[in-house]
Amino acid sequence: MDKTEEELTMLERHDELIHHDILPRLEKVEKAQVDFSTQVQTIADQVQDIKSSQTNLELTVMKDGQETRGILNKFVDHYFAADNQRMETQRDVIHRDERITLKRLSTREKIVLGIVGAIAGSGGVLAGVAGLMQLLK
């Protein structure tokens, strides 16, 4: 075999090696790279969808929170208005009871003063009892 035939044989082996071994491997690598790029793009799209969904969820939660605060504020205002009204009613009842009590004390004072005045018969003792009763109030 001369050098040209050897070179041709070697070229045929290389050609066979390239076509049967290297090119199929290269095609597999290229296909895997295309698949990988497709998957990366799919994942990137999904991440973008998740970000968008998260933003929408945040807005929804904020809106619901605002509506809830509005409802709670109305409830609190209503509750405190009712509570204030109840307190005013109780205050009015207490003031009325105090007026009744004062009137009763006034009547009792008159009775006590009348008895003490009848027993003591002196203006000095009567003034002392009246002063003592004023201090007790």
Rank of each mutant, 00 (worst) to 15 (best):
Q134P: 01
D97M: 15
H20E: 13
A127S: 14
V40P: 00
I115A: 11
T101E: 06
G65R: 04
L11Y: 01
E12V: 04
D2C: 00
I115N: 02
E7D: 03
D49W: 09
I115R: 06
S37Y: 05
E27H: 06
D45P: 03
L23Q: 04
R96Y: 12
D83F: 07
D97P: 01
I18C: 03
Q54D: 09
F80T: 14
S106A: 09
E6Q: 08
I94W: 08
L132D: 11
E5H: 08
L113T: 04
E12N: 04
L132Y: 10
G70E: 05
T55A: 13
T9H: 08
T4G: 07
A127K: 15
A120M: 11
L59F: 06
V40W: 00
K3N: 12
H95K: 13
A81S: 09
I100K: 07
E7A: 14
Q54E: 11
Q134H: 14
L17Q: 02
L23W: 03
M87L: 15
E12S: 07
Q41K: 13
T42V: 12
L57H: 04
N73G: 09
K31P: 02
T42A: 14
H95V: 11
H14Q: 06
M10H: 10
V112F: 05
Y79N: 10
H20C: 05
R99D: 07
V34H: 01
A127P: 00
T55P: 00
G124F: 10
L17I: 00
T60H: 10
L26V: 10
Q134K: 14
A127D: 14
Q33F: 11
T38Q: 08
A120C: 11
Q90E: 11
E27A: 09
G123L: 15
G123M: 14
P24H: 03
H19C: 02
H78N: 15
S52I: 04
L132V: 03
G131T: 12
M1W: 03
G124K: 15
F36W: 06
G65I: 04
Q41P: 02
Q48C: 04
K31Q: 06
R91D: 03
V61I: 07
Q39Y: 12
H95P: 00
Q66T: 04
K31T: 09
D77T: 03
Q46T: 05
M133K: 07
V47L: 09
I50W: 11
A120Y: 07
P24A: 03
R99I: 09
Q48E: 12
T42W: 05
G124S: 15
V93C: 02
E5W: 05
L59G: 12
R104H: 13
M133C: 01
Q39W: 10
K28N: 05
S37I: 08
M87H: 08
L113A: 02
L102F: 09
H78S: 15
I94V: 15
